[in-house]
Amino acid sequence: MTYCVAMRLDSGLVFLSDSRTNAGVDQVGTFRKMTVFENPGDRMMVLMTAGNLSISQSIRQIIAERTTTGGKTVWTATSMYEAAQIVGEAVRTVYERDARTLREFGIDFNVSIIFGGQIQGERCRLFQVYAAGNFIEAHNENTYFQIGEAKYGKPIIDRVVTPATTLNEAAKCALISMDSTLRSNISVGLPLDLLIYEQDALSVTRFVTIDEKNQYFQMIRSTWGQQLKTVFEGISDPVWNASPDDGAKALSATNTNSQPVRVQPPHSMLNTNPNPAPLQTLAQQEDGNKQH
């Protein structure tokens, strides 16, 4: 499995991917999930993949080499939308060639893709491409995409990232999102690839491969956990059966009547003594025996 996230911001794009491909007890594999298609001054495009590695590699190779029936490639596409169509066509080509054989061996055609960048003459754009070759584009209402093990790293992005977020803030948020995923799922692992692209640069602006020795990522891992604990401890414990004046601390109030949905035991097992005697400790039992 894997985890990849990309963000489209007013100031550019952020891409982050892990590199784990297998996660068994005695089998851990790595393969870089991020590929850059760059012609400085003309275009800069990034492809990130999750799913079956052989499918992903085949798709990437076709994208790099193939010319469409209209004579277009990712190197000659006049818009990112047209380039995304070429990526979708590559996905369908691999499906038509390999899906049936894979299915005979019990293997699903499993691939997800994030594709984004900028071609001279238009703005930065970001797409998510599905296994059928269709795709959607990021807009201000949904400024990021995730593929792979997305659930663990989603909450922090939802709370922090907007189109106005700076590239450095978005990169920090992406790394925190990745750290949350690394802590919760063994199928995601280091090293990471982080690429920052500034609007209209038309070439890679900043790139780093992050391993376990990276000081900034280690700082995030320790600081984020400590800050979360501090915030957690700073939130008041709930007050049960509170008076209406207790305000935000009140989890339940005396003027409310909440009851669980109960299932009654069979009639033959109903407790005929609704007020059973209180439990006795061993010491109380010994005292009672001495009195007798």
Rank of each mutant, 00 (worst) to 15 (best):
T76F: 04
I63G: 00
Y216V: 05
V231Q: 12
G29T: 13
G106C: 01
K151W: 08
K290R: 15
L47A: 07
T67A: 07
S56Y: 02
N168D: 15
K154N: 14
T223L: 15
W240I: 00
N257C: 10
R32V: 10
S243D: 10
A283Y: 13
P40N: 12
G88E: 01
L53E: 11
A283W: 14
L192Q: 03
A283H: 08
R125K: 12
T205R: 08
D42M: 12
R262G: 12
N271Q: 11
H267V: 12
N257V: 08
T93G: 00
D200Y: 11
I114V: 04
T69Q: 14
T272M: 11
Y3H: 10
G148R: 02
G225I: 05
Q146V: 06
N39C: 13
C173W: 05
R43G: 06
K249C: 02
L16E: 02
T49L: 08
S54K: 12
W75I: 05
M34D: 12
L167S: 01
E38T: 13
L47F: 11
R206P: 01
C124N: 08
S19G: 06
P260Q: 06
E141N: 15
V263T: 10
L16D: 02
N214L: 09
N257L: 11
R159Q: 12
I176W: 07
L167K: 03
N273L: 11
Q120P: 12
P244G: 01
Q27A: 13
N214R: 09
T67M: 11
D211K: 06
